[in-house]
């Protein structure tokens, strides 16, 4: 466990809390892609199946529970409680374009051909593309509420910090996991365009609106 890991997990948790608070306080999920949140719930479900079999630390187990809870509560708020405010026609990314390649790849490229390992690999590949429906929705509506951009910033920061964590672990433990690193780099690249807009617009107090 290193500082990048801890900051990364905190940043991830912060992103989920920002999103929950935004939806709960505004009683609306306008501008939020329900599909991305469903994908995140699938990511955590397929990744944390070892929740009851592998025990690493209290921190690890508690964080997995919290992440699962946040993901499912968010999905419930979007498709349940505040479904009337759900912007369905703009959340139009075709999930099968993500799920099929990711499923295929997790059967082809994995560390061992066992159900748990394939599901874990599936969750890693899926997480790297899970944000695409949200980014697609923002590009379609041409703008995003500032609170949504903060959510995306901390989500992107979490993965950038995880990259730093993997570099650190490679330097200190001479260990790395190619599948996690490659998909992590892909995921962080998707945020670069957003990071640029976030720094040049949102941090200057402007609203994030795409040209």
């Amino acid at each position: 466990m290193n500082i990048f890991r801890i900051l990364g997990d905190v940043s991830h948790l912060l992103a989920m809390i920002i999103l929950l608070v935004k939806i709960w306080r505004s009683k609306s999920c306008a501008g939020i892609s329900g599909k991305s949140q469903v994908l995140f719930a699938i990511v955590f479900t397929s990744r944390y199946l070892d929740l009851f079999t592998n025990f690493f630390s209290i921190y690890n187990t508690v964080m997995k529970f919290v992440f699962l809870m946040c993901a499912y509560i968010t999905v419930y708020l979007i498709y349940g409680k505040f479904r009337k405010t759900f912007d369905n026609e703009n959340d139009s990314f075709r999930l099968e374009f993500l799920l099929i390649p990711v499923t295929g790849l997790s059967f082809l490229e994995n560390q061992s051909f066992t159900p748990l390992e394939i599901l874990w690999t599936f969750s890693i590949y899926l997480e790297s593309v899970a944000i695409l429906p949200q980014l697609f929705m923002i590009s379609k509506t041409g703008e995003a509420e500032t609170i949504t951009t903060h959510y995306l910033f901390f989500l992107g920061l979490y993965h950038a910090l995880y990259l730093a964590n993997w570099i650190w672990r490679y330097q200190t433990e001479n260990y790395y996991d190619q599948i996690a690193v490659v998909s992590g780099v892909v995921q962080t690249i998707f945020y670069c365009d957003f990071f640029y807009l976030y720094v040049t617009k949102v941090l200057k107090g402007k609203k994030l609106s795409l040209p």
Binding site: R5, N54, F56, K64, F67, N165, D177
Partner: peptide, 10 residues
């Protein structure tokens, strides 16, 4: 070296 991932990350 690429060891078996202990899956200790979130």
């Amino acid at each position: 070296e690429q060891g078996i991932n202990p899956k200790d990350e979130l």
